[in-house]
Amino acid sequence: MTVSDSTRTGDDQPLVRALNVMKSFHGNEVLKGIDLDVQRGQVVCLLGPSGSGKTTFLRCINQLESIDGGRIWVDGDLVGFRDDGGQLHHLSDKQVAAQRREIGMVFQRFNLFPHMTALENICEAPIQVRGTDKKQARERALDLLRQVGLGDKPAAYPAQLSGGQQQRVAIARALAMDPKLMLFDEPTSALDPELVGDVLKVMRDLADQGMTMIVVTHEMGFARDVADHVVFMDGGVVVEQGSPADVINNPQHERTRSFLKRMRTEDEEAAADAAAADAAADAEA
């Protein structure tokens, strides 16, 4: 698939380019022209209040939602369409599936397959979709489980794992397809506070290994420490973007400032709650 010169991506070109992406649900405009470049090896965090469109935008990148306007390219390929001299044609289900293979996704609610063990969850797509040899897929799955700190849990069913363990299996499952790009949709939002750290650590390791990642998150600490680029969205537009130092520590827009202030208060409250819970537990023991 070829694209025009302005969007052709070589190694020095962005892995993901979104131009003027628009999306409506039943006449309700959720994305109002999003532009975003993600370079290879970059970690980009999408911040913003709920309803700002960040999750929708993430889902558009691997076509869990279709876009109404604009274009998205991943590694030079136009996402969801074939461009025939300016006339777009929808891709077939098979072609869409082929594009998704290159993009890993981690969901807020984990979405592990409950009827399969952790190992089977990870092996499923490589064997069924890529046609990888079963033994090879198994070896790789065990490696990935060790990598996410669950080397002792290959035979556990999701219901026997904690939320944090499930999410780490879900990350391993996405990595088993050797994606070029990983999308994280609020990966720690459904977790008990004490389980968040393990998942964030796995994501940090992944970032250190040079994986390109787009992360929708409310974890300000993670965004500050790990992200190369932070995007603040509100009301379906990008309000401001830049390095974490600029956006988080020195926001230029009023909307960013008030959001960050709210998040900080919540963080402090959560920290206070956790401290109180710890104190109570100590008192009990």
Partner: peptide
């Protein structure tokens, strides 16, 4: 979310249904 997770892994709709 199950069908979505399967789709995100690059499974076709038929395979996601079966597996």
């Amino acid at each position: 979310g199950q069908a979505e997770a399967a789709a995100a892994l690059g499974m076709s709709r038929g395979r996601a249904m079966r597996r």
